[in-house]
Design a protein around this nucleic acid. Structure first.
Lengths: 206, 206, 206, 206
DNA sequence: GATGAATGAGTCTTCATTCAT
DNA sequence: GATGAATGAAGACTCATTCAT
């Protein structure tokens, strides 16, 4: 069957509607009817553009992680120094309470699914890989600049940055306090920087 | 009363069955029939002990987080120094690939729900508070011992420890590689220690 | 899952309701809701007793063909001579306009399905085999009695009897004229008898 | 008009596509999309040439039975004697395993529908009438030739020929064995001949 | 003439919940 | 206390039909 042919635009529209719907209601509670309602189309249209509900969700997550990654890329590209790039990266991750809430709600549903389903895990792995590429770039630049510990393996350290970002953002989401968003962003930045600066210190004192 | 006791035991049994079931299948896919099957009781029994499916899940998460917390408490109590307590705490959090997988799958489902539902959020907050109490105790002890940065607010820093632990464990879960479990535990420990040691450094260089 | 345990009676009731429903509306138009309505139970009950709609239909056809066969068996057992048994067999097949209509409508749906689906074909083959056993018995008895052509292979001739019966009953059904039922029964009987008597004649004149 | 002609051709094409589709999938499973796919046209075209799905099916069956009848007519016209015409008729009915399978699958679906729906029954009646005209012609010729029982009413006997043909072909279809096709054709021929030869015998011995 | 996007009614199926035994 | 039969609401999915282009 020839699908996806013409209106890729409409597909995107449906995905965005699904994103809003999932964010507000959660994976379990989102029905195709709800997605259709959010997209202001009939139920049949969703099926017309996507084979199944599962497909909608999978495409949603591909689209979403790709979008996040692109934004992060764009924001670090504007900066030159490692520290500024790191700032930019983390600021991009902590974009705003509203957007973080919307995204991380969906992302948590996604992670929960990914913990059991290889298809979702694969998509997340792609996201991780992309984020790690960013992390690696920043670490290596910082090492060249002499401000990050030269002994760190960029390869092994990059994932840790993402782990810390996600850890903080998830906790922030759970706190349900928008006013703490800035605090969490700073905390995250601090933790990452201390991680990149001081592993040698840690080794000495261990 | 003996009867009451027996009831309580059976309740626990059902909760444990629900835990296994949710871990394997996820919140969405778990039905009361499945829980009953895991518990080797009839479907009616589950309803006999719990008002509704929702109640089962809520009780499950109360029980689960309480259990995790107790284990963590027990493990740090055995140690005297701050560093050893921290080790014990993190080792307790990174108990084993199998147990971490089982727990964090459920916990992710839980967090996803909690991001929208105040009831679940409340339960998680209790868990966070408990964990933060542990964190605070360790930080303050370390500060007394002179090995942790004295300028850190224990109150504000304790949550960060949990954020880092969860961040690492979630990423580990996504990697689906049991052999990396140890690596993630060490990375987590390093990050936490560098966080506690070096905030002054960070301040200086910023 | 433990199904089919207790109320086999209710299963039969649902099958009978399905039989009536299919006969009146046809396979395509019969929904589980319709079957439930005919059985005067809720829609869920049908699913409780049968895995799927397909299962209902398959069981229906097993049950139906078994029932027809049993009746035919019972009717020929009462007779002693080959001709009388043949009469009984065909009379049993041409039981009454109402019952023939009800059964053959369903049976035609069944045959249509069986022409493409091995599962249904298998069930029909069982029915054919049973009918052929009846035919064989009659033919061999008639040959012993000296009234049927001794040169006929009972094995090869028995299926022909059923083919002729079905051919006539299907045509009768299409005519939609109850008053012709008797005529078709007699025509069927004649054709079968001439088939059993005269193959030698045919050979001679060919 | 050329336009009209083109239309007619396309209609035939769609009907033929529908025929193939129904034969392979059955009435229930055939959708307009499937028919369109088989005909290599868009879904809209089918609706352009036919009012509704039902119309497609009805026209299909008219077209199909007319086609079969024409072929049978053509084949008996080539022969002179009654026996040869009968041979030709039955050979035409038993044209080949492939074609019989294709046709009788559809025809069974058709009969199943006809058993409840007067519209389809009407079309089939037309087919029966046509077939009976052939049968009558053969019988009367045979009676003139002195090889068929002169006491037979051609009017009443002709339908029986078709009943026997259909009975055998349906059973053959159910056996799913192409190698038996020839056997069933011969058996059908024998049965019809014995039917036409020997009714007087039957009367005598009854 | 032809296309295929859009609609929404209708179907199967699942499952939490109720309740008679 | 315990069971599992019964219910029916709700969801995913299909598909004939319509209609703008």
């Amino acid at each position: 069957m020839v699908r996806y042919k013409k209106s890729e635009e409409k597909q995107k529209m449906i995905l965005y509607a699904a994103f809003q719907a999932v964010s507000e209601l959660g994976f379990d509670s989102v029905t195709l009817q709800v997605i259709a309602d959010y997209a202001k189309v009939s139920k049949g249209v969703v099926h017309y553009y996507f084979e199944s509900k599962e497909t909608v969700l999978i495409e949603l997550l591909k689209w979403l992680t790709a979008k996040i990654y692109k934004k992060e890329c764009a924001s670090i590209e504007l900066e030159k120094s490692a520290v500024k790039k790191l700032h930019a990266y983390i600021s991009s991750a902590f974009v705003s309470p509203e957007k973080n809430r919307t995204f991380y709600r969906v992302y948590l549903d996604f992670l929960a699914k990914a913990s059991r389903n290889p298809v979702y895990r694969e998509i997340n792995q792609q996201f991780y890989d992309n984020c790690n590429a960013i992390g690696k770039e920043i670490i290596q630049l910082g090492q060249k600049e002499g401000i990050f510990d030269i002994n760190l393996s960029a390869e092994q350290t990059a994932p840790k940055i993402r782990a810390v970002i996600d850890g903080y953002l998830i906790q922030w989401l759970m706190m349900d306090r928008d006013d703490l968003h800035k605090f969490y962003r700073e905390a995250c930045l601090q933790t990452v920087i201390s991680m990149l600066n001081n592993s040698s210190f840690f080794e000495l004192r261990k």
